[in-house]
């Protein structure tokens, strides 16, 4: 009772990174709250993952195995999560903010009539005093997330209802196994007792992995390369940085014409117009044809070895130098500074 529950997501027979990140975070939250960390894993063959979960600090693992649960389905999975959370009554329940977590967690929160905060980027423990009633709350979960298109950071609390639920973005928290795995318990969930035929009314007809469509416009961070990047091979550096920052890669017309990037990535007068919160222009000189498509970005960083490149004029931060040195340093610094 009163522990922290982490919903463990698996994909392709592997535990999702975000679930391990949540377990890592849960360990420090549990220490502050003097409670334990529990994991809940659902699938057709998931018991094999228990050693890894112990390695990440799960003290109790709830396992729901059933051949009907091979793929994620909202109704049976949520029935199991709702049943386990009702029975175990944890104070906190966390999910990854993935396609699965964002489908599952709201359904569960509605059934439990408890609050849920989506897409948190940070979680802390803190107190709260209700201004009106003067009522004081100790050790609440501060659920911190960007809102309003990323223009504000909101701290959300769930003072009265339990569990305090949140989904957390992948990659924002660090993933760290323990040196010595905990010697935890395993609780096997009786799925036959929970699942009903009505839970299987939605059928999966077809399922396959496709290349994701390039979504430049929807990305809050864009790393765009120009002719100055030099080659298609050098563009790989931009993809590396994009992977770290959770960004999309864009390109100037010159870079697209030179074959460095697909035309779907083209930004500017003849491409798409973007207004991300962060635009990193790499090897782009800054001709009006390009800047017309990005100069409304909330923040612009330019990287160009020519100090006179016009792109530096519209940038908030202008870095003069070689992208082959700068980008690896940005990645290194990001890794050092990210929590």
């Amino acid at each position: 009772m009163n522990n922290i529950f982490i919903y463990i997501e698996t994909e392709g027979g592997k535990i999702a990174d975000v679930s391990l990140e949540l377990l890592t975070k849960a360990r420090s939250l549990a220490k502050e709250l003097s409670c334990e960390v529990e994991a809940l894993i659902i699938g057709d063959s998931v018991a094999q993952h228990k050693e890894e979960l112990f390695q990440y600090g799960a003290q109790t693992i709830h396992i729901a195995e059933d051949k009907r649960l091979k793929h994620y389905l909202t109704l049976p999975y949520s029935s199991i999560v709702i049943s386990v959370l009702k029975k175990e009554n944890p104070q906190i329940a966390l999910f990854g903010a993935t396609s699965v977590g964002r489908d599952l967690a709201p359904r569960v929160s509605s059934a439990l009539v408890s609050g849920l905060t989506a897409d948190c980027t940070s979680l802390e423990i803190g107190d709260h005093k209700e201004v009106k009633s003067g009522k004081e709350y100790k050790n609440l979960l501060y659920q911190i997330r960007p809102a309003f298109g990323g223009n504000i950071i909101a701290t959300i609390i769930n003072p009265d209802c339990r569990p305090q639920m949140a989904t957390v973005r992948e990659g924002v928290m660090k993933k760290e196994p323990l040196d010595v795995a905990v010697k935890g318990k395993v609780k096997v969930i009786d799925t036959a007792a929970i699942l009903k035929d009505e839970d299987f009314v939605v059928e999966i007809i077809e399922r396959h992995i496709e290349e994701r469509k390039i979504d430049i416009k929807g990305s809050p961070i864009i790393i765009a390369g120009g002719f100055g990047v030099g080659s298609k091979e050098n563009f790989k550096l931009l993809y590396d940085l994009a992977a770290v920052l959770g960004a999309e890669v864009g390109a100037s017309r010159a870079a697209v014409d030179a074959g460095f990037a697909e035309s779907a990535r083209q930004i500017g007068q003849t491409g798409v117009t973007v207004r991300p919160k962060l635009y990193i222009a790499v090897g782009i000189s800054g001709q009006i044809q390009h800047t017309a498509g990005m100069d409304q970005s909330a923040m612009i960083i330019s990287i160009n070895n020519d100090p006179a490149a016009p792109i530096h004029q519209i940038a908030d931060f202008a870095i003069v130098g070689d992208l082959n040195e700068i980008i690896p340093r940005m990645i290194k610094s990001y890794k050092l500074n990210s929590k």
């Binding site: 408890s114 905060t117 504000i152 909101a154 701290t155 959300i156 003072p159």
Partner: peptide, 8 residues
């Protein structure tokens, strides 16, 4: 159930 504690 959820309340906004702080806006930055």
């Amino acid at each position: 159930p959820t309340k906004v504690k702080k806006i930055e």
